Simulated assay, not measured.
Amino acid sequence: MFERCRTPHDIAHLLRDRFGLPVQLLAGRPMITTGSILGALVMPPELGRKVLATLDRTFTAPVVADPGERTWTFLVTPPSPATAVEIAVRRSLAGHHVTVVPAGRNVLLPSTDSTLGWHWAGEPVPGLLRMPPRSAVISAVHQVTGMRAPTP
């Protein structure tokens, strides 16, 4: 996918045009900022594979893998209106090493097709940016781990 990109600007342009991602460059690296347009959840790749397989039945899920595949970052739609994830839910997710990324944080995007760099574990569908709701990814984590969603 990135074979024709020669500069970080080429990569940012490709990600914007192909997937509709609101890409910015920070120190020459393509990234997005979580907030009103999109959110993110980070988890171990073993869990991420199961969650992605569960979501594939219903949603397209863009997923970024870090170099060495230590973490997978799911790009999600933020809730509307913006609501915080309850403490009990955060604790249950933390038990499986899942983090809900707060608003205002930078998420690095793929800049190579190689697993030696930031790359897609789940490539978005070209066109209008489509992401699963944050709640759908959290529900998928609960489903594949056998966790019960905490009750208020």
Rank of each mutant, 00 (worst) to 15 (best):
M1N: 09
R4I: 02
C5G: 05
D10I: 01
A12S: 06
R16L: 07
R16C: 09
F19W: 11
G20W: 12
R29I: 09
M31H: 08
M31L: 14
T33R: 15
T34L: 09
S36P: 15
M43Q: 08
M43T: 10
E46G: 12
G48F: 13
R49H: 15
K50R: 15
L55Y: 04
T58H: 13
A61I: 05
D66Y: 03
P67A: 06
G68K: 12
R70S: 08
T71L: 11
V76L: 03
V76W: 00
P81K: 08
A82S: 14
A84T: 13
A88Q: 12
L93Y: 02
V100Y: 09
A103W: 04
R105L: 14
L109E: 03
L109W: 06
L109D: 06
D113S: 10
T115C: 10
L116A: 14
W118N: 04
H119C: 04
W120G: 08
W120Y: 06
G122T: 02
G122D: 03
V125P: 08
V125Y: 12
L128V: 15
L128M: 14
L128K: 10
R130L: 02
P132F: 02
R134L: 11
S139Q: 15
A140Q: 08
V141D: 00
H142N: 05
T145Y: 01
G146V: 11
G146E: 00
M147F: 12
M147L: 15
R148F: 11
P150S: 06
